[in-house]
């Protein structure tokens, strides 16, 4: 994306997020059952969706890096950028779920299948990020990080289907349930849809920025390395002094 396109996209994202906030907090009605605590849905669902999406992008980029024909450093960096944003959203999703569970379920945290597998997901990708940071060179980083990302992604479908497979405290999906029976309508549905859309755009902004940052830093490291090598060579093999 060009500089201008990026700015327009970022601006539209911010405007949509603002509209979402107004809709979610004021326009949209309270749930008959849960009252206003239900407004946490408008953040909990998009953050959960983005956690899935971000880790899917990480897995896809890792697979593309692993396949010799499409191997490129960009895929490796994209995997890292997406995973970092994904961990941020997973953390937010857990926090929001906890704040929602306290008034409605009557507990901050419960070890049911959905919550447990989500916590595991969070820690798996924290480990992945730690692994990325500790690798010294990009050659050392590439393969092991890609494989670790693919292994960790196995948890994502388990998290998603846990509420359908097993008896949990957590409810099943409001939209993506086995029967695809949408159980939210009217203003609530519009708000949720807009929220998911604006957060997805926010994810794109954050991930692309993070990718650019990673590329710039990678390039700088490369340049510094070349400079250091050149200096070392110059120091060990000084130019023969010109004798007059």
């Amino acid at each position: 994306m060009s500089r201008n396109a990026r700015r327009v996209f970022g601006g539209v994202t911010l405007v949509l997020l603002a509209i979402t906030a107004v809709l979610a907090l004021w326009v949209s009605p309270a749930d008959k059952e849960q009252g206003d605590a239900m407004r946490l849905l408008y953040l909990h669902v998009p953050t959960a969706w983005l956690a899935y999406l971000a880790f899917f992008v990480t897995a896809l980029a890792s697979a593309l890096w692993l396949w010799p024909r499409t191997r490129s450093t960009t895929w490796d960096l994209l995997a890292g950028a997406s995973a970092e944003v994904g961990v941020l959203f997973t953390g937010l999703m857990l926090m929001l779920g906890s704040l929602w569970g306290r008034p409605i379920w009557g507990t901050w945290w419960e070890w049911d299948a959905r919550l447990t597998t989500t916590a595991v997901l969070f820690f798996l990708y924290l480990g992945y990020l730690a692994l990325r940071r500790t690798a010294d060179t990009s050659e050392q980083r590439g393969k092991r990080c890609a494989i670790a990302a693919l292994i960790a992604f196995a948890d994502v479908p388990i998290v998603h289907f846990s509420v359908n497979w097993w008896q949990t405290l957590h409810q099943t999906g409001t939209v993506f349930n086995p029967k695809l029976d949408v159980q939210i309508h009217g203003t609530m549905a519009v708000t949720l849809l807009l929220s998911v859309l604006s957060f997805t755009m926010l994810y794109v902004c954050l991930t692309l920025s993070r990718l650019r940052l990673a590329e710039l830093e990678e390039g700088r490291e490369q340049r510094e390395l070349e400079l250091a090598i050149a200096e070392r060579i110059a120091a060990e093999h000084p130019e023969p002094a010109v004798t007059v």
Binding site: F123, L124, G127
Partner: peptide, 15 residues
């Protein structure tokens, strides 16, 4: 990796 000893538990335990 230089930090292998501390990284292994962080990777293995969640898995």
């Amino acid at each position: 990796l230089r930090v292998r000893e501390t990284l292994v538990p962080l990777l293995v335990l969640p898995a």
